[in-house]
Structure formats: structure tokens, C-alpha cells
Design a protein around this nucleic acid. Structure first.
Lengths: 196, 196
DNA sequence: ATGAAACATGAATACTGATTCATATTTCAA
DNA sequence: TTGAAATATGAATCAGTATTCATGTTTCAT
């Protein structure tokens, strides 16, 4: 009945989670439109109608997965960065942690990127909020003399762009290549630039 | 009859072009699945069935639009870069030209990005081939001492990532902001890095 | 000028898949 | 223990739209 209410029994909690994970797997693998509710419930080993006890629509699970990815990415990167002695080391650690996360949860990564076309608002909100927090860090680091002065917002977006694209190319497309090498090379460019 | 053959009369050539442009507008604005063939032909002021005289399927026009975008981007960037005195200047000019192009043809840009989910092969082929050519340029420039030595392929992908993300953020989402400022700030980082 | 090849039309076809609903089963607080 | 609330089921409903096709109309090489 299109509720989307939080479940009240143990069984309900478990079912909702099953369906959410199945949705991650199916949508992550086939994409939003190709993955049908039937696919999702089949994979979750429940009846078709059960889906609508926990989610009001396909867009609705999708949105929840995007949210989840946002929280996870933030947590992973924040955690990786906490004990970096300075901002430059934090950049390297953050990039590496992000790429490792993409390797671990490729489906969630793909879902976030597809969100641009399914739920543009969620997508925008996610990246804008991430960029904002990122820019604050960069700005403070520049003020502290840890970075060359510059527009923190533009930098934040540029750095996110590097991470996203390298994740796609070197993790999703070709996960055999050496992530550490990619991180080292990209970081060298981020730190010192291309000028000789 | 699902031909997709090239038209043989003036009228045919014009109709095909009308439909292609309408497809660009509709798919660019609403996305691949939301844009129906009926939308496209209505916008092109032709009958529904006419679509299938020139294209064998919705995927087919889409693929052609992706190809077109690839050729255009390449042409625009190459043109902008030709008379740059050195690679660093070329980077700045290329980035600026790309952002201007996104501003001029936002729908084509969106189409290329959506291709990842509609026609992954076309998407991969486009960026891989672009990156390859880009890496050659970077590699030669490094050999000539115009750039600090480093992995040209990783650099190429990182730089494409910067351009894509800045295009999305500062052109598609917020085209009121000053592109030149964004280019200057991003380029400063690309040239000199973040280290103080 | 002419007729065979191209092109145009839009109603009809064909199919897919999201969402609902009436009914049955399970849970758990009292 | 018990019954009201939660949860489960999957067939049926409902809506949308990609693609085809039979029937005209237009083009253009000859």
C-alpha cells in the first residue's frame, strides 16, 4: 500500500534490508530502467507486492540508495583523512580511500552517477553538500599556509572530478590495474602541478 | 521499415536532420527514457512513422548523437589548441574551449554523460579514444621538457575529469558564474599544484 | 513528362513493467 | 494465550510507448 514507513517487527526490518540490498545489486548491475521491481523482489526472495510495503516506488528505493552512498562515502573519506598530519597528505589519503571504496561497492557508485538522470535533485544535493564541506577544509588549509592560496570551491569541484573519473576508468572499467600507482601519479599532479 | 539508410533526396536529408535535432533537444532536455519517439517527431513536425525511415530505433539516434558530440568536442578543442605556443597554454585554452562548448550545446553534453547508461560501449569508446590522443600530447610535451615528467595516461584522465565536473557544476548548473574565473583557478591548480 | 523509387502518414499492434488489492499469514504487546 | 496490527502474496489492473504496416504522396533521373 505504498507506505514506505519504517518496519515495526524484526521480520520487517530484515525484509526491508533484503529488498534494499537486492535493489542495490539489480540497479547497480542493470541500471535503473532495466532493473524491474520483479527482478529486485526475485533477487530478494520475496513476493512482488512486498516491495511496496517498504518503498513507495522504484524512485523511492533509488533515492534511498543514493542517500546511503552519500553517507558511506563521506564516512569512508572522513575516516581515512582524520589522522593525516596536513592537508596534502589528507588529499592523498582521501583519494586512495575513495578509490578503494569504489572497488568495494561498484554498484553504489554507479547508482550515484545514474542519479543525475533519475533524481537530479538528490544528485545535486549530494555533490553540492559534499563540495561545500570539502571547500571549507581546503579554505582553512590555505589560510593555515598548508596550500597555495586559491579559490577553494573551484578546487573542491576539480578534485572531486579527478576522483570520480579515475574511479570510473581505473576501478570500474579496469580493476586489474594498480590503484596505488594511479593515486601516486594523480597526487603528484595535484600537489606539484604540471609545470616543470 | 527500420532502415537507417542515408536519405537520397533533398527532402530526405532535411527531414533526417530535423529529426536528429529534435532528438537532441528532447533527449537532452528530458533524458533518454522520458523522451518518447512521439515527442521527438512532434518537435520535428513530422509523423511518428517517419522516425523509422531514418533511424532503426531510439538507441540508434542516441548513438548517432553521441558520435556527433564526440566529433564536435574533438574539433572544438583541437581548434582552440592549435595555436597555443606550448602545452600549458594549450591546457588552459582547451579547458576554456570545452566549457564554452558545454555552454553552447548543453544537451549534447548531457547526452554523452547519459550514454554511460544507455550505450556503455559508445561511451567507453568515446572517452578511451579521446584519452589516448590526449595522453600522446601530454607524453610528447613531457618529453620535450614542457611538463614535469609523469604518467601521461593518468594525467589525461584526471584532466578530463576536471573538465567534465567543472562543466557540469559551473556551466550546466549555474551558467551565470564567470567561466574565465573558473578556468583561471582550475588552470592555476593544474599548472602549479596545491603545494605552497 | 513520367513512373519507379523514396518518402510520409498515423492508426493499429505488441509488449513491458509499475502499481494495486483482496486475501492469507505472522508477529508481539498485553 | 490472543487478537489487532504488521507483514506477505501474486494475480489482476493500468498505463505508456516503441515499433510496424498498409496506404498515400512526392521526388527526380531518364
Amino acid at each position: 500500500m505504498s507506505t514506505n514507513a519504517y518496519p515495526r517487527t524484526k521480520r520487517g526490518i530484515a525484509r526491508r534490508e533484503q529488498i534494499l540490498r537486492a535493489a542495490e545489486a539489480m540497479i547497480g548491475a542493470q541500471g535503473f530502467s532495466a532493473a524491474s521491481i520483479a527482478d529486485i523482489t526475485r533477487h530478494a526472495k520475496t513476493a512482488l507486492g512486498t516491495f511496496y510495503i517498504y518503498f513507495s516506488s522504484k524512485e523511492d528505493v533509488f533515492r534511498e540508495l543514493v542517500l546511503e552512498m552519500g553517507q558511506l562515502t563521506r564516512a569512508v573519506v572522513t575516516e581515512a583523512v582524520t589522522d593525516a598530519p596536513n592537508r596534502l597528505d589528507a588529499e592523498r589519503a582521501g583519494l586512495k580511500a575513495f578509490l578503494r571504496f569504489v572497488a568495494e561497492r561498484p554498484s553504489l557508485y554507479r547508482i550515484v552517477e545514474e542519479a543525475r538522470f533519475i533524481d537530479a535533485e538528490a544528485y545535486k544535493a549530494y555533490f553540492t553538500s559534499f563540495a561545500k564541506a570539502y571547500a571549507v577544509q581546503l579554505s582553512e588549509a590555505a589560510a593555515a599556509g598548508e596550500l597555495r592560496p586559491g579559490d577553494a570551491e573551484v578546487r573542491a569541484w576539480a578534485l572531486m572530478g579527478i576522483a570520480k573519473t579515475l574511479g570510473e576508468r581505473y576501478v570500474l572499467w579496469d580493476d586489474t590495474s594498480d590503484i596505488d600507482h594511479v593515486v601516486d601519479e594523480a597526487f603528484a599532479m595535484i600537489r606539484d602541478g604540471l609545470a616543470p
